[in-house]
Amino acid sequence: MKALRHRPARVLPAVLVSIVMLALAAALLWAAIARLATGQWWSQLSRAAQSVEQAPWAAPGAMVAAAVVAIIGLLLIIWALAPGAFTTARVASPEPEDAVVRGGVHAVITTGGLATLASGAAHQIDGVSGVRSSATAKSVLVSLTTPLRSRDSLVAEVRAAVEERMRRSGVFPAPKIRVRAHTKEMS
């Protein structure tokens, strides 16, 4: 059940690169068909071929193009090799009977779900006027606004509430909870 807990599949760069490949293919095809139909290349293509003929390795335009190509290559390699964060966190699940499940029950919760749970827990605390949360599989960040000037006890209370919510939800390993509070006067 590996597919449940996966890292980013890099769909966006794959789609972008394949669209660039298709665009390049269309341009090549169009140029070749135009050459076969009219007997001559596009004037822009002929002029470009003539102008690059005399250009040395160190031509400024060529060096800029080479640098751009190298940077794109490096970005693609980083995209491919960087593992990326898990999009789900594990949830404790009971050991099933063999007559029901021979392997195991694997449960996860989405990181978006963790953030929503954290916001929900924080919102129940008196003194909290607004909450926004974000989460990874390892940590949850709760940003709250409050009309209170003294925020330390509120931050501790919210942290305890969110930790309790994570514990009751069976999320493991327990994510690190960070709480930031900002005072905002109520109008």
């Binding site: 059940m1 597919a3 449940l4 789900t88 949830v91 699940s93 099933p96 063999d98 007559a99 029901v100 499940v101 021979r102 392997g103 195991g104 029950v105 694997h106 449960a107 996860v108 919760i109 989405t110 978006g112 779900g113 963790l114 929503t116 749970l117 929900g120």
Partner: peptide, 19 residues
């Protein structure tokens, strides 16, 4: 499992939280 007649080999549960 009762309906299927055989135990599952594996079960995966993905929880999504919604408002």
């Amino acid at each position: 499992v009762e309906a299927l007649g055989v135990p599952f080999t594996d079960v995966g549960i993905e929880i999504v939280v919604t408002r």
